[in-house]
Amino acid sequence: MPNDATLLLVDKNVVEQLLVPDDVIAAVREAFKLHGRQAGRVFPVVREKLTTGGVFGIKSGDVSSQNLLGFKAAGFWPSNRSIGGEAHQATVLLFDPATGRPLCVIDGNAITTARTAAAGALGLSLLARQDTAVATVFGTGIQAKAQLGLALRTLPLLKNVYYVSLDREPQADFESLFAGQCILRCATNADEAVAQSDLIITATTGGGPLFDEAALRDGTHLNCVGADTRGKRELAAGVLDRARIVVDDLEQARELGELQWAPHAPAIEMGDLVTGRSRWRREPADISVFDMTGLALQDLTVARLIHHRATELGLGVTASWPW
C-alpha cells in the first residue's frame, strides 16, 4: 500500500479567490447537461433536523465517465449568528472513484453561494424576459446578494430593484454593495413591490409565503431559492397554479422545494432545456418559476474546478494521508 498519498485542503479564502463567475456558470451549465443526459447520477438527499436546532444534509453523486465522485455535507444552524458565525455551513469532499481515497476537502460555503447564484443566472438567461427592468429581491443575506449581483450582469435592462428585508428596514451593507449598479429601494410593502416587478428573487430561510398571489402580475419570472427542506416555502398558494415551472430535479423539488406544495403540477427540468430535449418559448403573459433546490452535480463540477485550479497554482494545504 502506498504511504505517500496526500490530501489537499482548500479553505474559504482560496475558494473565493478561485471562483470566477463566468467559469462557475459554465461549470453549473455542465452539471445541468450531465443531469439532462443522465450522464451523472444524483444520489438520494439526506436532509434532517437536529435536536441542536440545526438542519444537516448530504448531497452526493458521481459522473463515471469523468471520474468524478463526491459529496457536500451542509446545513443550517441559525444559532451560529449569536456567536458571530455563518448560519450556513458546508464542506465538499472529492474522491478517487477507483479506490475511494479522498482527493480534496474544500470549504463549501462559497461554492454553495456561487453555484446557486450561477444556476439563477442561467435560469434568467433562459426563462426571464430579456426586457426585464424592475425586480424585487426578498432577503438581504449572502445568497440574495449573489443572486442580485448576477441578475444585474445577466439582464442588461434591469435598473430598478426593490428589496424586502426581514424587518422592512433599509440595510446599509446591502445598498452599498450595489451602489452605482442600479436604483435600489427598500420596500416596506412587499405586495406593492411585487406588483411593479418583472422579476422576483426569493432568497430567504423559507419561513412562509412572502407576498400575496394576487400581487403577481402576468409576464413575471421568479427565481426561488429558499425552499430546500420539507416544510419550507416562499410562495403563496396559487402561484404555482398560474406558472410554468422549471426545476433542477423533479423528484427533489417535489420532496424539498416549492413543488412539495403542488406535487402534481407539471414541470420540466433545467437539464432538459440546456440539452435541448425540451423547448422553451415565453409568451408575453407567462408567469415562470425556477424552483432551485440545488443539485449535487453542481457542487461537484464547481468543486472540481476549484481542485484543478488550486493544484495548478499550488494553493491550499497538502496533508499527508497514507493508506
Rank of each mutant, 00 (worst) to 15 (best):
R233P: 02
N13H: 10
D272H: 12
L93I: 07
E30T: 04
A135E: 00
R309M: 07
G206L: 10
V289D: 01
V10N: 08
T132M: 10
L295H: 01
I201H: 05
R304G: 02
V302I: 08
N109Q: 04
G75P: 08
P102K: 12
I268M: 15
V239Y: 02
K72G: 00
S288N: 09
L68C: 01
A98K: 04
L50E: 04
R47D: 12
T229R: 13
G61A: 05
N13M: 01
T91Q: 02
F174A: 12
L295N: 09
I268P: 00
F56E: 08
A121P: 03
A90M: 10
V194A: 12
I83T: 03
H35S: 05
G84I: 05
L216N: 03
V46A: 15
D286K: 08
Q181V: 07
R101L: 13
R309L: 03
C104F: 10
R168H: 13
K145Y: 06
K159Y: 01
G271L: 04
E175D: 00
F76Q: 09
P209K: 13
D191W: 10
W321R: 02
P44T: 01
A319R: 12
G226E: 04
T154E: 01
D11Q: 15
G149K: 11
G208H: 02
L235M: 08
L18Y: 09
G53A: 15
L93C: 14
D218G: 05
E30I: 03
K145I: 06
P78V: 02
A118F: 11
V46T: 11
R41I: 06
I183S: 13
N189Y: 07
A310M: 02
V15M: 08
D22A: 13
V289H: 05
G257C: 00
R282A: 08
R304C: 01
T112L: 09
A27I: 01
A121W: 07
G231V: 04
G180I: 04
L157M: 10
V55F: 03
R129E: 02
I83L: 06
R81M: 12
A296Q: 06
E258T: 04
A90W: 01
R242E: 02
L259Y: 07
V63R: 06
L34P: 14
V247F: 05
G40L: 03
I58D: 04
K72R: 11
E16G: 14
T136A: 07
T275R: 14
G206W: 01
A73F: 15
A227K: 14
H88K: 07
V20F: 05
K145F: 08
L126W: 11
